[in-house]
Structures are given as structure tokens and as C-alpha cells.
Design a protein around this nucleic acid. Structure first.
Lengths: 222, 222
DNA sequence: CCGTGTGAAATCGTTCACAGCC
DNA sequence: GGCTGTGAACGATTTCACACGG
């Protein structure tokens, strides 16, 4: 592999705190914005201020992966965009299946942000036969019982799971058996899956509960 | 304060780690499920196993707020449901506005999970006049320029923000000026808001990036 | 002088291990 | 015997502070 100007360390992933990875996504988002606005370089303190982190935090996070900054100058925005995408693995395209074509599922299919980040829906599935065999936002909807075959045949790597809570565990297991290695779960249940599968859960009601708590327990109520 | 059987501590909210609060939501979700399945009590180790935490973690988390368990028995599911709802502030209803009626916004309006947890959409807003003045899932859609007046008049407390990234900061500021005190932000930008406003950000593409990273950096690739 | 990279210190969160209670 | 509540030990992450480079 032809190296860039600056070396890219490849630390044991277990050494990288999960919190660092989630900030990486935020750095990337902000850097792309800065880059588009014509900014050439940022310092750790500028980037930190924009995102609500300290400058030391920004530097430590980036230093996990190599030496990308120039003393006295800062970081080159476009270079760092490339570096972070390579670290996150989004410098290539990922194939994604949508599991469960309800309200939320349809919204996910139509969400423009995924393609821009390298995630491509290649198939959708629903167990309601009336929904199957249509096309939504350019993506074919298949009956759920073809999941196994199509995931396998189309080499689908990731899945977004937006089926009802009661079905989530078994649909997830089917997807995994067919070769899916990462799942974003929108169903309001905790899935129990093999170690080797990457999983993040997004529970919309739970997000509101977090807000409710901090409002309800405000030290300085209005 | 009229106490129940067991005292409910009210610690300085600043003393409660954010991680504890987010686990509280998961405990609640699981306890409601257990309760519905007719289970009377759970031990910390059972609850932990179901959610992927240690037993000590469960006990420590709950002990932040009082003494709810019975040695030798465990925790009473339905009692604990009530306690956690009181802690989270979801033992009463919250009024919520939906800001931005795109694909995602419509899905949020139709999401059943919110009402069940005590969150009620009372109005939606969109700056596209063609979308305004309709009714979606029983919620009236208003033009964005009525946001200020209606949030104020209807005493709307929280907002879910699903407008395009470019509009998010200014729409959020409008909502806050009108009295909203908590926001769940789905737009892929970091908002800069006054201290006294509670904010959580949900970036759907970012969630996929987390998965991509852990798959791409798997120690044991398939 | 400005700004990075990085050990050392401080802080925060989790797990251990056990006393006490049912 | 089973299980909670909790101080103490541990581990992880964040912040500090400074040496070094453009």
C-alpha cells in the first residue's frame, strides 16, 4: 500500500476506546464541513471548540492513529478527512440491508446521508407479503423468507433492523446466519448475539428519556 | 414528601454519571418486559445478564437513587418500573414538537413508542408551505413561522429536530427562544446552544460508521 | 510565538469482595 | 443459601503541563 506523507499507525483495535471512535465520526463530520467552506487547516483547539471538547482531547484522540498535525500550523482538513475515513473503514462502500419496511424503515431507505458516507442499501425485506416485491427509493423490497438467500448471494455486510420488537431477535439471527457482520438495531429490545457481530442499538424513546431526565433534574429549573 | 415503602434519594443530578442514566432506560425497558411476562422479582445478576452488564453494576446504578432491593429476594419488577419512571421524569407526560416534516419526521410522528413512554407530539412544523396545514398521524403540521407563537401558547417542552443540517442551528434557537428546554437533534451537525438546554444528538450515518469501524478492525476477520 | 505530541497527574467509572439481611 | 448495598481496589479516560518543532 502506498503510504501518504504521514504514517498511519494501526493500533490493536482493542486499544482504541469506544469513546474515541465515536468522536472520530464527529471530527470527520466537522472537518468535511470546514473543508467545504474552504478552510485549509484547523488547530486542535478550534476543532475542539466547535464540538465541545478540549484541545488536549482532540490531539490525544488523533494521536492514537498516527502523527497528522504540524506544530505551529495544525491539521490539514482535507488530509485529515481522508485519514479518518480510512480509519473508520468508510473509504470504501458497504452493502446494507434494510430489515423491516415500516414507517421508520421507509425513512431510512430515503435518507440521503448514508450514500454520502459510503453505505449503500442493496435490498430491503419485510414479512408482510403486501409490502414485498415493491421498489422504494430505488431499493427492491423482498419477502422476509428470501433474506437468507439474498444476503448471501449479494454479499450483504451490514443490516439496519427496524422490525417490531417481538421479531427483532429472530430476524437478527437469520441475518447473521446468512453472513451479516454488523447490525444497527432500532427495535426497542436488547439483542443477544454472538461476540463476532458488531452491534449498536438506537432506541428513539430512550433518547427522549435522557432529555426528560436532565430537564426534570435541572439544578436551575425555569 | 410522601415516601413509598422505600426511600427515594434525590442526589445532586450532577453526581449521577450520564452512563448510569442511559442504563436506567435499558433497565426500565427490560423490567417492563419482565413485568408483562408475569415475573414478580429479578435479581441484579438476572437483570444484568439480560442486558450484558455485571450484577455489581446493576446494584451500584440503582443504589444511586435509594434502597429498592430486598436481600435474598431481589427487586420487585413493577415497583422498580415505577421508581425508574419517577427518576427519569416519565411518570408524567411531556409535550413534544416535531421540527421538520421530511421522511424521518413523518416516521417519528408515526412512531408508537413515544406515547407509550409519556411523550406526546402536540404540533409539527415545516418551512415548506406545501407541507404546512395538513394533519399527519393526528398531529397538525404548521408553517415554521408559527413555531414561536405555538410553542409558547401550547407550553411545548421538548423538540425533535429533523430539519436539514443547514437549518438546524437556527431552528433550534427559535425553539429555545420560545421556551423549549430539551432537544433531540437528528440533523448531522453539532449544535451550539445555551447551557440550560438539554441536548442529545442522534446521527444515523454516524451509527453505521461505528459498526463499520468495528467490522473493518475486527481482530478475527471472517 | 503558535501548536503538536506525550508522559504524568487527576478524574471518573467499573469490578471486587464481603458484611449484613431475608 | 441467595442476594443486596457498599467501601476499597482497580482500570480506563480525561486533563495538565511542558518539551520540541515550524
Amino acid at each position: 500500500m502506498s503510504a501518504g506523507k504521514h504514517k498511519l499507525l494501526q493500533p490493536d483495535p482493542a486499544d482504541v476506546p469506544k469513546a474515541v471512535v465515536s468522536r472520530l465520526s464527529l471530527y470527520l463530520r466537522e472537518l468535511q464541513r470546514l473543508s467545504q467552506h474552504g478552510k485549509n487547516t484547523v488547530s486542535s483547539s478550534q476543532l475542539g471548540r466547535l464540538l465541545g471538547f478540549t484541545d488536549a482531547q482532540v490531539r490525544k484522540d488523533l494521536a492514537c492513529f498516527g502523527h497528522f498535525g504540524q506544530p505551529g500550523i495544525g491539521y490539514r482538513c482535507d488530509e485529515l478527512v481522508g485519514v479518518i475515513r480510512r480509519i473508520l473503514g468508510t473509504d470504501r462502500t458497504w452493502t446494507v440491508a434494510l430489515l423491516g419496511v415500516g414507517n421508520l424503515g421507509r425513512a431510512l431507505l430515503g435518507y440521503k446521508g448514508f450514500a454520502a458516507k459510503g453505505f449503500q442499501f442493496v435490498a430491503a425485506f419485510d414479512s408482510d407479503p403486501r409490502k414485498a416485491d415493491g421498489v422504494i427509493d430505488g431499493v427492491r423490497v423482498h419477502p422476509m423468507d428470501q433474506l437468507s438467500e439474498l444476503v448471501h448471494r449479494q454479499r450483504i455486510q451490514l443490516a439496519m433492523l427496524s422490525v417490531p420488537a417481538a421479531a427483532a431477535q429472530s430476524v437478527a439471527e437469520l441475518a447473521i446466519a446468512a453472513g451479516v457482520v454488523g447490525i444497527v438495531n432500532f427495535a426497542p429490545v436488547t439483542l443477544s448475539l454472538p461476540e463476532h457481530v458488531s452491534l449498536v442499538g438506537v432506541d428513539l424513546a430512550t433518547e427522549l428519556e435522557q432529555i426528560a431526565f436532565s430537564v426534570a433534574n435541572r439544578t436551575n429549573p425555569r
